[in-house]
């Protein structure tokens, strides 16, 4: 364990500000094994996320970070421990926690517009037709997809597909966004452009975000706090790093600062340490 200093907060210190919007406490996830034992994926995760906080979760592959996100989404059940949002326990999926999928999760038989419209139809059931149309159009414009609105997912690039995923998620006005390696399948240039777009959108209408990633630069650029996971099996939170840069952020500017270097090296060292343990 590294010693905490002013920049790095330990995971187990409760947040001093208002009570958490999302509270994960003593979360354990295990699967039964064929020889009637159990395989522990996550072991005792405690985390609190504020209602307009952007949190990144970093760890090596197989550390259970995606499982953690799925439990928050309600797509998987915790073995023990609780996840509460605004005090209510999460037991099943809900549109108040909208997912942005690594592989976009777009329905290939629907156009870009219809993909977003489907989500709006499901969630905003009482809205008028004209309202729904304007919500869809507004979010298409937000991610600069108005021109591609009537194309099918097969006809657009990966970056555009993920923008559809983001527009779909935002269109139903969730209280929290869950992103599972949202830029993981994109090339480097598209990725950095889309990171900026997403951050711009988030800065203009802040809400709780939990993003799974394995890119340290992405985590520092976008998030308020970075959760470093130890390796699985039985992974848990190793450290939580506070990212001190105020919003709106400029990637070039923060990259010049001493804090950026320290933060980045600290995170990379943490990950390296767990990496070498494997071998």
């Amino acid at each position: 364990m590294v010693k905490s200093n002013s920049v790095y907060n330990n995971a187990y210190e409760p947040s001093l500000s208002k009570p958490g919007f999302l509270e994960i406490s003593n979360l354990v996830k295990s699967y039964p094994t064929p020889d009637s034992g159990e395989f522990v994926v996550l072991n005792g995760v405690d985390l609190t996320v504020g209602e307009d906080e952007f949190i990144s979760v970093i760890g090596h592959s197989g550390c259970g970070k995606s499982t953690l996100l799925k439990i928050v989404a309600g797509l998987e059940r915790a073995t023990s421990g609780t996840v509460r949002m605004e005090g209510r326990e999460i037991r099943k999926p809900g549109s108040d926690r909208m997912m942005i999928f690594q592989h976009y999760g777009l329905l290939p038989w629907l156009t870009v517009r219809e993909n977003i419209r489907l989500a709006v139809d499901e969630i905003l059931k009482d809205a008028k037709r004209s309202e729904k149309i304007s919500i869809v159009n507004e979010h298409l414009a937000m991610v600069n997809l108005t021109a591609a609105a009537d194309k099918y997912p097969d006809e657009i690039s990966g970056g555009m597909k993920q923008r559809v995923g983001i527009a779909r998620a935002l269109a139903i006005r969730p209280k929290m966004l869950l992103m599972d390696e949202p830029f993981g399948a994109l090339d480097a240039l598209t990725k950095s452009k889309l990171q900026k777009q997403v951050l711009d959108i988030w800065e203009s209408r802040k809400q709780a975000v939990m993003m799974i990633t394995h890119d340290v630069d992405e985590a520092i650029y976008m998030s308020d706090r970075i959760v470093l996971m130890t390796n699985g099996p039985a992974a848990t939170i190793g450290e939580v790093l506070e990212v001190p840069f105020p919003h709106p952020r400029n990637r070039q500017e923060i990259r010049e600062t001493k804090e950026y270097f320290e933060l980045r090296n600290h995170a990379l060292n943490f990950l390296d340490r767990y990496f070498t343990q494997d071998e």
């Binding site: 989404a73 309600g74 797509l75 099943k92 999926p93 809900g94 549109s95 926690r97 909208m98 997912m99 999928f101 592989h103 976009y104 999760g105 329905l107 489907l118 989500a119 499901e122 969630i123 139903i172």
Partner: peptide, 16 residues
């Protein structure tokens, strides 16, 4: 599974 997850997150009932 991605499509089914979309359906679950959007709280679709069985018929939908």
């Amino acid at each position: 599974k991605d499509y089914l997850d979309v359906a679950r997150v959007l709280e679709m009932n069985r018929w939908r």
